[in-house]
């Protein structure tokens, strides 16, 4: 099953905690079940997106890295 991305957020070159802050702002505009894709270069973001997902209940569906860019796919609770 392919995942349909509702919105993409470019958080590359932003320092901690801005990738998470921008994600929290973006997800407010989405409906439950919508999927948000985020790209980031902050080295702390792998652990941060995992933690944010666990605490807020927004599901982290995918997490990968390519050429130094982290990509996170989240489904809104």
């Amino acid at each position: 099953m392919t995942i349909s991305i509702s919105q993409s957020l470019d958080a590359r070159n932003l320092s901690c905690p801005m990738p998470i802050v921008k994600t929290a702002i973006a997800i407010k505009t989405l409906a439950s079940g919508d999927v948000l894709e985020v790209s980031a270069t902050d080295p702390g973001s792998v652990k941060d997106f995992d933690a944010w997902s666990k605490i807020t209940g927004n599901e982290l569906i995918e997490s990968d890295v390519q050429d130094g860019v982290f990509r996170f796919v989240l489904r809104k609770k």
Binding site: P17, M18, W52, T56
Partner: peptide, 11 residues
């Protein structure tokens, strides 16, 4: 500010 933003992001 970083600690505040992080806390706000997790509710």
């Amino acid at each position: 500010a970083v600690l505040t933003a992080g806390a706000a992001a997790v509710g």
